[in-house]
Simulated assay, not measured.
Amino acid sequence: MSHTAHIRSHRKPRRSASTIAMRAGVAGSVLSTLAVGGASASSASTAEPVTQTLELPTLTADLAAQVAQSADATQQAAANYELRAERDAAAAKAAKQAKSDLAEAKKKAAAKKKAEAARAAAAEQAASRSSERTTLAASANSSSSSSTSTSTASGSAAAVIAFARAQIGDAYVLGATGPNSWDCSSLLQAAFKQAGVSLPRVSQDQSTVGTPVSLSNLQPGDILYWGSAGSGAYHTALYVGGGNFVGAENPSTGIVEKPLPWSPPTGAVRVL
């Protein structure tokens, strides 16, 4: 026998299995109760949030609809603003074009008025010239009864006149001396050469040869001049009788026979 056998063990006596099982059962029951209670409490505590969770989608949908409506309204406002801006730009462009068209119309109207005034002035001037020519023609006809103005060319004068008339239709070219183009003084120089008369080449000198005669006392073969005799003369032609003259007038007419009133001369000289 051990020497410690009579000393009580300092360890606690072991509980029996039944006691432990009973306590375990009690504890399990308590834990189950607590779990159930906790679950109940948890369910109770989450009951109110469940209500909020159910309402949240409704609030979110309303808010989304409001946002969508606001976006649509903003987009529509932007579209309306853009449309107004385009209309304003079109109106401004149309106004600018209208202003330009009005200015152009005024300019054309002013030009038309100016052209009409010019035509009226030209018509008045033409009528005045026609009146002057009529007066001169009447004067020439009144003096045609004199034997000097109606006398038929003969001798040397006839040869000069025949040559000049033969060139009618030829061209006028300044400085030309024939045979198909002439200027005023070269035509007379060539015509008088047919009668054996040597004339100077230019109009200024031709206006001073021979004897000065009055325009009311002309004879066929007389030399007519325009401007003042001498250095002031700028044109010459040949008087052919009947109130007419033959001359190289200008590039547009060439060599022509015209009545004195068509272009009244300034003076005349006689060399035949």
Results as ranks from 00 to 15, higher is better:
residue 40 S to D: 07
residue 264 P to M: 14
residue 23 R to F: 06
residue 165 R to F: 03
residue 269 V to I: 02
residue 63 L to E: 06
residue 196 G to E: 05
residue 62 D to Y: 06
residue 11 R to K: 13
residue 5 A to K: 14
residue 254 G to C: 11
residue 62 D to L: 12
residue 79 A to M: 09
residue 73 A to Q: 09
residue 95 A to W: 12
residue 261 P to C: 13
residue 55 E to C: 03
residue 106 K to M: 15
residue 228 S to K: 13
residue 100 S to R: 05
residue 93 K to F: 02
residue 47 A to K: 10
residue 258 K to S: 12
residue 144 S to P: 02
residue 80 N to D: 14
residue 4 T to L: 13
residue 215 L to Q: 11
residue 122 A to R: 14
residue 206 Q to R: 07
residue 178 G to V: 01
residue 266 T to P: 15
residue 225 Y to C: 12
residue 103 A to R: 07
residue 208 T to Y: 03
residue 36 V to Y: 10
residue 51 T to R: 14
residue 142 S to C: 03
residue 49 P to F: 08
residue 64 A to V: 06
residue 228 S to L: 13
residue 149 S to Q: 09
residue 55 E to W: 03
residue 158 A to L: 11
residue 85 A to W: 11
residue 58 T to Q: 14
residue 195 A to M: 03
residue 91 A to F: 04
residue 12 K to P: 15
residue 71 A to W: 04
residue 250 N to Q: 06
residue 188 L to T: 01
residue 67 V to N: 12
residue 218 L to M: 09
residue 260 L to P: 02
residue 241 G to F: 00
residue 211 T to P: 05
residue 129 R to I: 13
residue 253 T to A: 13
residue 124 E to M: 07
residue 35 A to W: 08
residue 1 M to A: 13
residue 200 P to K: 01
residue 193 K to L: 04
residue 161 I to K: 09
residue 18 S to P: 02
residue 22 M to N: 04
residue 177 T to K: 15
residue 148 T to M: 08
residue 250 N to M: 12
residue 153 A to M: 05
residue 115 A to E: 00
residue 195 A to Q: 01
residue 81 Y to K: 09
residue 146 S to L: 08
residue 134 T to G: 10
residue 207 S to T: 01
residue 101 D to P: 04
residue 170 D to W: 10
residue 209 V to H: 04
residue 72 D to G: 07
residue 136 L to R: 07
residue 234 Y to M: 03
residue 120 A to V: 01
residue 243 G to N: 05
residue 22 M to P: 00
residue 198 S to Y: 05
residue 233 A to N: 02
residue 46 T to W: 11
residue 14 R to C: 07
residue 114 K to T: 04
residue 171 A to G: 06
residue 213 V to R: 11
residue 128 S to C: 11
residue 113 K to P: 11
residue 206 Q to E: 06
residue 178 G to E: 06
residue 65 A to I: 00
residue 269 V to F: 02
residue 26 V to S: 08
residue 11 R to Q: 10
residue 73 A to K: 11
residue 8 R to G: 05
residue 150 T to C: 12
residue 20 I to K: 14
residue 212 P to R: 00
residue 212 P to Y: 01
residue 199 L to E: 00
residue 172 Y to F: 08
residue 111 A to L: 07
residue 101 D to A: 12
residue 46 T to Q: 12
residue 221 G to Y: 00
residue 96 K to E: 15
residue 200 P to Y: 01
residue 30 V to E: 14
residue 233 A to P: 01
residue 32 S to D: 05
residue 97 Q to M: 09
residue 213 V to T: 03
residue 211 T to Y: 08
residue 97 Q to N: 11
residue 98 A to S: 14
residue 216 S to N: 12
residue 110 A to D: 07
residue 206 Q to S: 04
residue 264 P to W: 15
residue 217 N to P: 06
residue 86 E to Y: 06
residue 28 G to A: 15
residue 201 R to S: 07
residue 37 G to D: 09
residue 173 V to Q: 14
residue 261 P to N: 14
residue 106 K to I: 12
residue 97 Q to E: 11
residue 163 F to M: 09
residue 215 L to C: 08
residue 32 S to Q: 12
residue 52 Q to Y: 08
residue 10 H to R: 15
residue 251 P to F: 00
residue 177 T to Y: 15
residue 174 L to I: 09
residue 7 I to Q: 07
residue 111 A to Q: 10
residue 49 P to C: 09
residue 48 E to T: 10
